[in-house]
Design a protein around this nucleic acid. Structure first.
Lengths: 342, 342
DNA sequence: TTGAAAGCGCTAACAT
DNA sequence: ATGTTAGCGCTTTCAA
């Protein structure tokens, strides 16, 4: 390990001067600076960030805590954060919590020991409490809002996106539109549900609680929820489904398949969040797309601005995009037992 | 920030004793230990890993460098590594290189400053060179082999998996089997290509270089390669395709679609590496599946064993699994211009 | 513009 | 079993 002292010796200056030449060049005479830089280069000097951080009481690193790194949406968020952080010379310490409070807690504890400058977190209902472990740390909430007073958030316009999707289904003539919604203690689920509700209202359709089934964001939950909805008696069964996130959309499509329902003939379906999978499926799935990478990148930029002392907006919403593909079609009159018995 | 000194004061012992009580309890009298632990708890003490690592010349952290975190295969590798590392109290510093040598170099430089105990890397052709930045660091190569003498590697049996897939196609009666292969300066591509070659040989089929098209692992490359192969004159066009990785498989399927070729009637196709996408596509794609999570977990366990001074096998291969689905079918006689003109 | 000296929080010799 | 002391590599007063 080459230390600054080695560099200083070679350049025939004191360690203090060597340090200045490397980190605050303007404080050092041109000739001296050159000599130090040259020495550093020949020795292949790499600063020991541990020592530096210890001295400065803070490392040039950021924490990133996501809830499911295997979810491509989160992978994109993470890439957005990483790319921006790296460009600014920050190291990202990334943790995955699987939506478990205990894991989040451990992540925060570990993080604390590394003295990060700031934190970007996809909050869970436990985040509010766990954040007490990191007092005075600048935090950006990403994708969801924990509800902490004064929290900085970077999200998408969930309500608008959901409204658009459900309005589309209504305009296609569907009157029984079901929703598979996320956990209602998570802001995205609440907002998307609100968009659903408002779209029904504006379309003059009744809100039927029995057509709204919550799930825990996973494929299996989407499958179970869809199964429940699609096995209702024919007169009550929804003819269209709006699904609140990407993983549950997969489950819903599989459930429909298992029940022998063809998309879009027997069932129209729109998902929230786009994916490779949604694009290449047969039929391709109509979705409300989110700018995941941009979301991550913006969160990181916001955090860095905050650290730089700039004033940043409390809350930012990026726009979703409605992408019409082939999984939602006009309602076709269906043979019903009643019609058959007339 | 609560320091060890605060804890020591409260427990009425020296900092050294407090340190011992926390990290090497057996060296401290029961009563003292209790007092220290109690003090640490009441103060909410969290060790400053920076100071500790500086002192110990090494942090309880591992480097993980992957080439494409957006690729679900790599995301799974990463999760496997993370889960094992976390269970052993190690922090993972993860970097993404996008297969770019410059990014890998920067990742290694950054990593060096953090004094990691070891490194797990998905090597690129540049890794050999770049690793000179991290002399004396224990390294595990994951998924691919760089060719460095004495390197520890954790991989799958690429050659066997490819052999199985191509043999399957041959057994279905296909005689012109094309391969879309990765970059031949990467070991996985070489090995899968070798399996392809050997399967053809054993099936009594000629190896035709014109039916082997290399690509750079991305969807776009797979698409272009497939397009080139599938627009060959009918008599030369392959009736089956073996694709060397997951992203290129997507591209190949899309290319076939664009050309109006239906799977498996007009074209049989088998991909390497399973995915959500391959499972739910219509038709579902027959694949050679890899135990990605296990691969990552094993690499991490191997590294930790190595750090623990145990002797570990130089090279480990995990088994692939052939999963037969619906994208490969027996060759059906096709209407050809020649047949028509007879 | 440069150097000397102190100290970030921790642990490992060494001493008792 | 515990305390004293020194020092990891760096930056930052303070002084020259």
């Amino acid at each position: 390990m080459i230390s600054l002292e080695d560099v200083a010796k070679l350049a025939q200056v004191s360690p203090a001067t060597a340090s200045r030449a490397l980190t605050r060049p303007e404080l050092v005479a041109e000739a001296t600076r050159e000599r130090v830089l040259e020495a550093a280069r020949t020795l292949g000097y790499q600063p020991n960030v541990l020592a530096r951080s210890l001295r400065q009481r803070g490392s040039r690193s950021l924490g990133l805590v996501v809830t499911d790194i295997l979810n491509p949406f989160h992978a994109l968020l993470a890439k957005g954060v990483q790319d921006v952080a790296e460009a600014q010379g920050y190291t990202v310490l990334m943790f995955n919590t699987d939506e478990e409070s205990a894991k989040e807690r451990r992540a925060f504890e570990t993080l604390r020991g590394h003295l990060p400058q700031g934190l970007i977190v996809v909050p869970t209902p436990a985040t509010h409490l766990n954040l007490k472990l990191l007092p005075n740390l600048p935090v950006i909430e990403l994708d969801r809002a924990s509800g902490r007073a004064g929290a900085h958030t970077v999200m998408v316009d969930n309500e608008v996106g959901a409204y658009r999707a459900v309005s589309h289904l209504a305009a296609l003539g569907h009157r029984r539109i079901g929703m598979i919604v996320g956990r209602l203690d998570i802001s995205t689920a609440v907002e998307r549900h609100e968009g659903y509700r408002r779209a029904l209202l504006d379309a003059g359709l009744p809100y039927r609680p029995e057509l709204v089934v919550p799930g825990n964001h996973r494929e299996a939950d989407g499958r179970a929820a869809a199964h429940a909805l699609l096995t209702l008696p024919p007169a009550e069964r929804p003819t269209a489904l709006f699904v609140g996130n990407n993983e549950m959309t997969v489950g819903a499509v599989l459930a429909a398949r298992e029940l022998g329902l063809r998309l879009p003939d027997d069932l129209s379906l729109i998902g929230f969040d786009d994916s490779r999978w949604a694009q290449t499926m047969t039929p391709a799935i109509t979705v409300v797309a989110q700018p995941a990478y941009d979301l991550g990148a913006l969160a990181c930029r916001t955090l860095l601005n905050l650290l730089g002392g700039q004033t940043v907006p409390q809350s930012v919403r990026l726009k979703t995009t409605f992408i019409e593909r082939d999984s939602a079609a006009p309602l076709t009159p269906q043979p019903s037992p009643l019609a058959g018995s007339r």
